[in-house]
Design a protein around this nucleic acid. Sequence first.
DNA 1: AACGTATTAAACCAAATGGTTAAATACAAG
DNA 2: CTTGTATTTAACCATTTGGTTTAATACGTT
Lengths: 125, 125
Amino acid sequence: MDRLSLTFSALADPTRRAILARLSTGAASVNEIAAPFSMSLPAISKHLKVLERAQLIARGREAQWRPCEMKAEPLREADAWIEQYRQMWEERFDRLDAYLMELQAKSADAKATSAKTAKAKKKKP
Amino acid sequence: MDRLSLTFSALADPTRRAILARLSTGAASVNEIAAPFSMSLPAISKHLKVLERAQLIARGREAQWRPCEMKAEPLREADAWIEQYRQMWEERFDRLDAYLMELQAKSADAKATSAKTAKAKKKKP
DNA sequence: AACGTATTAAACCAAATGGTTAAATACAAG
DNA sequence: CTTGTATTTAACCATTTGGTTTAATACGTT
């Protein structure tokens, strides 16, 4: 599986996102991580393995503890992927688009105005 | 399933991400979408259903065609979630952190410097 | 050596995923 | 009304996922 798919599917679970939220405030043992959840320890252990495979966490060894710490690096790639589409959801863009649509509709009879609008749509503000 | 999980798991598949990339350049029919893939039409149809459930696409009706268009809205939320962790992966931050670590190490004998360093670490540059 | 705590592994299960092929549906055009 | 094209549904299959319970392992303490 590619890194991006690994990252996204690791993030596609609320338990795992909560674990990352916890770990973003500092390293923790498996028991500490498991505490807030009404779920067996092995279940948490499996979630940690998923996060580890996606390289969103790394684990150390201290006596019988396996402290986990977050590694945000993979999120950079995920962010970059999503970023491509930012202008598609940004309000400014939507508003401009709506405005241009409106202009275009109103100018059904005024060809000159319609041409100007089409030109304006090409620009990415 | 919550919106965020729906979004991330929809994105956790390279075929679906490719479909979105295609649709970001304009609406398309199912056949057009399917063309680049060596996969049966029903398989694509299922992927589209996943994207639709995540509200990443919307479908119209035109005769026997069901044109799909991308709706980036859910990406806003996904972006916001990831954004929380931006400073954890940004290089500037890592460099500063490394620099402060270094300072701290060198000042093992100079208490005053160490105090300044700790204070500096609280700020988010 | 025996016990207690922290964690993982094994075996199992139900449900979801990602794919297939073959059949059904929806609509346009002869 | 039959045919052709676009798309979805149904039935099926293998694999993965997310959980369980019951061992097993690893290490510190007594």
